[in-house]
Amino acid sequence: MEAIVVEELTKKYGELTAVDRVSFKVSEGEVFSLLGPNGAGKTTTVEILECLRTPTSGDAFIKGLSVRDSSIVRRIKKIIGVLPQEFNAVGNLTVYENVELAAAAKQASDLKQVLEDLGLWEVRGRMFSKLSGGLKRRVGIAMALVGSPEIVFLDEPTTGLDPEARRETWLYIRRLKKQGSTVVLTTHYMEEAEKLSDRVAIIVKGRIAAEGEVKSLIARHGGKTKLLFEELDSRAAEMLRERGFEVEQRPSGRVVVRVGSDSEMFEVLTALRSMGYHVYPEIKQAGLEDVFLSVIGSKLSNTGELT
């Protein structure tokens, strides 16, 4: 069964169309990412799913329940867990008390379990305001996860975290998936979407530009694997070109050879060796970055801006 079905969802803020006829489905137990730059409409989309915003048109169904039907909003809220964007818990409450707040709101009884699962039990007595950035975010995640929601929405869960804390957060998201939760993630980090999600929707200016399994998206839009040679002379490049390979000589002196498969890569290397070139290229497999570039036509910076 589908956990979430989104149909032609549109949200206008006055003149601005923040979400424009967006449709997608999320299966149960899946990690689904909305990947896009700042202002793409990610938050607006998930907040409609969380019953925090009313769509202008279109509809979305959480386990078959329409978010437009105000009489069943409570039923939806009982099965979801939410980490709002840039969330900060209450500064002068402790870790325990903050999660207790969320637990009370959801009438959950797994407070201790969640604190232990997220490694927060030892620091439960510390004031939220005194925690490091990574721990703060983890408290937010605990507040989203308490009550064992079937569907978890994490809006930019790693933005602003240092690499270590980010990796830690990924660990918890992976564990969530293992436990069978459905996770909807928004992010502007390519790597994050690629590593964590089963399926990704690339969203720009309120529209979904591409959507699908990470692998098939890369296969469809990512292009070939790149072999990067630091030093390779023109003769070798010419030879490879003659043999029908796709060769690009960069002004920096680097040579890039694009190959469609592993056997093709093997052919390139044997050809070079037979001519006496003992060189080892850096192999760069295509990723979401390439998908993004080819679908959108620009790159996405680490701060979430299009460049």
Partner: peptide, 15 residues
């Protein structure tokens, strides 16, 4: 609480 998202989080629960 509005700015920090606490109210948003509460609003997403049955409270």
């Amino acid at each position: 609480m509005k700015r920090s998202g606490v109210i948003k989080l509460l609003a997403s629960t049955p409270v």
